[in-house]
Nucleic acid binder design. Structure first.
Lengths: 211, 211
DNA sequence: GAGATTTTTGACCAATTGGAAAAACGTTAG
DNA sequence: CTAACGTTTTTCCAATTGGTCAAAAATCTC
């Protein structure tokens, strides 16, 4: 069958333009949400005319769908790599570190996802209840096993995962607030190092000083 | 001087209608963001015609401003009440609990705020750098004092506050995801109790089991 | 109940929106 | 060169958007 829909890039020029569109769309969608973003905005950010953009992605939703798909795949990689046969503490520690690095290096992706969640995940709910839930269930079982072996405190594995997501993504999603509160001084990229150190302490030993 | 702008309600009917509008607007703004929300939507949700709504709030931005103002005031109350002369551990514990209760009882407010942050806080940045920063600076100093007295682990007070915000608001902002992952079973309002228990353990002692 | 005032409605507007059509342009294989 | 193809632009459209305005309706004051 011949598909004319340019969903997957065939030629060099198609690949380039589609990349430019997706790049621009990530900017716009991640700050304005799906409804708040306009095709004109995206087209301008991508340096092309609206009809030209629509030649590559026949509708607005198509662009968004592609971005979300790319994102979810990449987003869950760190959790996927949590190794059941590894040592619990280093595994979790490194999961937190990798997740924080992603918040630092891909803040727009984080915000795109956050936007979608805030809106009730209308275009993502299936993946949440499918792939995502399956993966989390699997890893939760692993964590539960670790707890049973006495290698972790007796914590709810689901809420543990939530808290890792929350604390790391916060630095991407609430970046403005973080910057505003830290002020101009404490505000180089060094804040991610501070965050890493803090989260290490929090997740390992908490706030109560050890006797 | 005679102000005709109905910014503050004068009569009973004004108060009622303005409340209905703000209530409806909270729904819409918190799920679609400022740009994604339309006056028509809000008017319909409030059960009145668009021109009628515009009689009470002459522009869209006015509604949003009022909501944000109301929200910030209420949102920072728990932090404001953190008592420098109290015991550190109970003070922080109770701050976390109150913040989690707010996420449970006022999820739309949380999402409204999150939406504004994602968009770069265009209508809120002044408050963030003003009132908010001042308050956080003040409380951070308090926490630093507690650390110096050896009553808390040696943590960065700013990131401590961020992590409390992140973990608690997560249950409001990412509600869809939390529900999807927990599945239909584990999903009564009991999830907030589970969260409370988990956060207690996390913030007090972390994940490493005590010898 | 008359008159003043407040509230509501209906009709309207210009700008913006997502998108369609088709013609114009460019590229390339034969 | 030319036919076939892929790309881009111009023009257009109907729907939606935030907002206005004057008249109608309801309410309040005396």
């Amino acid at each position: 069958m011949d598909e004319k829909a340019p969903t997957r890039p065939r030629t060099r020029i198609q690949r380039e333009k589609q990349d430019r569109i997706l790049e621009a769309a990530l900017d716009i969608f991640s700050t304005h949400g799906f409804r708040g973003a306009t095709i004109d905005q995206i087209a301008e950010a991508a340096g092309m005319s609206k009809p030209n953009l629509l030649y590559y992605f026949p509708r607005k939703e198509e662009i968004h769908k592609r971005l979300i798909a790319r994102l979810l795949d990449m987003w869950l990689a760190p959790l996927r790599e949590m190794d059941p046969s590894g040592d619990p503490i280093p595994e979790i520690r490194s999961y937190i570190r990798r997740k924080l690095e992603m918040a630092r290096d891909f803040p727009r992706e984080s915000r795109l996802f956050a936007n979608e969640m805030l809106q009730g995940a209308p275009r993502t709910i299936d993946m949440l209840e499918g792939d995502l839930k399956r993966l989390v269930d699997e890893k939760a079982a692993v964590i539960r096993g670790w707890v049973a072996e006495g290698k972790l405190s007796r914590v709810d594995p689901y809420h543990l995962i939530f808290s890792i997501w929350a604390t790391t993504q916060h630095y991407a999603d609430f970046d403005v607030q973080v910057r505003a509160v830290l002020g101009p001084d404490r505000n180089g990229e060094g804040r991610f190092d501070d965050a890493a150190r803090y989260l290490e302490q929090l997740f390992m030993h908490g706030l109560v000083p050890r006797g």
